[in-house]
Design a protein around this nucleic acid. Structure first.
Lengths: 227, 227
DNA sequence: GAGACGTTACTACACTGTCAGTAAGTAAGA
DNA sequence: TCTTACTTACTGACAGTGTAGTAACGTCTC
């Protein structure tokens, strides 16, 4: 809860040390989660004591927030022209990211663990992930709108669901992949799913499973146990 | 590590108390995760001390395993004839589950948190989730094979990816829903995504994004930072 | 010599698991 | 049916560990 907004009188080596800490923290939080990821382990990796870490970041909570922001920053750096592609290219970019992620096991694990952990009570990363998903969904909605405009079709009502689903399938596959890397093809499956979901929006087909309404009604009436 | 395989000389009230503990543990692990879910909080809910819980389950690790097994047991009870439907009905059943889940916030949260937490080092739930996903993927593969046989088409190579993707999208949507219940329609989005993915397997269409190969090659060459 | 950087030493606490002991139940034999 | 022997279901106290944060102190660098 210590809200010391750190505005360090940036010396160059200090900046380097701080990013070194951020990378170490990513590794530890990825391996053990936030709760079981002790500051001492992070400190060891950068040749410091845990009190040194606290000097830089004020609190462990704050460190987590900085770790998450840091990843976003480096992600954008990877882009040539510093901005996201639009239209269908946005989805192609997602597929590329999925391929790239196969060699970024540490970060993938950190994100998978932290995003799910963030739904627990009073988690310091909660606001971050809420905002992140909100932004990403909005992003994809716009990509869909662009793609629709290009093809001269009206924007279907399914874009909201599709946007959420695309992010969901990428996240979900990461968890399965982390648990069984030999059985799950992270990138290929992501590509397949994104393709399928984009296709379902831009070129919808009649339902194979029956209208949502009927299945829904069916579902509502059955299984009325509450846990 | 205390491997006291508990085979309790089942007294009826004892059994009841034990399931009471399992339900309380589900609530606590759901709210705080396994690591931050203390035994004392579980004990309080059932009017006991934490030592009492340990008497019944031997260790906290073992308790978690029992919690997970317990949920599986109750899930199967919900089914009328005790066995999973096959073919396309299997997917309809998934959609029904998604609808039912909207009123089972507690269990959904427990599963979302625990499954992601399980990818961390030495997590006691790891083996459980590995097995669970393996089984579920196999399940869905078979459902696809049935559906293909029914329609007289050969089984496409995409079934593996689709099976993993369907589970993934359901899990991923749950996380987003838990973080923003007003913005994400868990059930409707799940239905949409499952429909899209099943459709993409049974009735494939030409790619909108370009062949996987090209995008893959593109991806491999770019973004070669490792985290 | 002022402030940033970092250490050592310490406090405070949360949590799991152990242990000894108690109360209540259960089974068996006379 | 009373007694004895044993088991189950706990409690309360405590040990041990891991961990976040604080405070006081150096030390290097502008």
């Amino acid at each position: 809860m210590s809200s010391t907004r750190r505005a360090p009188r940036a010396r160059p080596e200090t900046l380097a040390k701080r990013t070194e800490i951020l990378r170490a923290a990513t590794a530890t939080f990825g391996a053990k989660g936030y709760n079981r990821g002790p500051l001492t382990e992070i400190a060891d990796q950068v040749g410091m004591t845990h009190a040194g870490i606290l000097h830089h970041f004020g609190s462990k909570d704050q460190l987590l927030v900085e770790v998450l922001k840091y990843r976003d920053r480096t992600d954008v750096e990877g882009l040539q022209d510093q901005r996201m592609p639009d239209g269908l290219d946005r989805f192609r970019h997602l597929v590329r990211t999925a391929f790239a992620n196969e060699s970024r096991h540490g970060i993938v694990q950190a994100y998978a663990v932290l995003s799910a952990e963030s739904v627990t009570d009073d988690h310091p990363g909660r606001a971050y992930f809420q905002e992140r998903y909100r932004t990403l969904r909005q992003d994809l909605r716009e990509a869909f709108e662009d793609a629709c405009a290009e093809r001269g079709i009206t924007v279907p009502a399914t874009v909201d669901r599709a946007a959420a689903s695309i992010l969901a399938v990428m996240d979900g596959l990461q968890v399965q992949w982390l648990l069984a890397r030999d059985d799950v093809e992270l990138a290929e499956a992501s590509a397949f799913a994104i393709e399928a979901l984009v296709g379902a929006v831009l070129d919808p087909r009649p339902s194979l499973l029956g209208e949502a309404g009927s299945v829904a009604a069916d579902a509502r009436s059955a299984t009325d146990r509450d846990a």
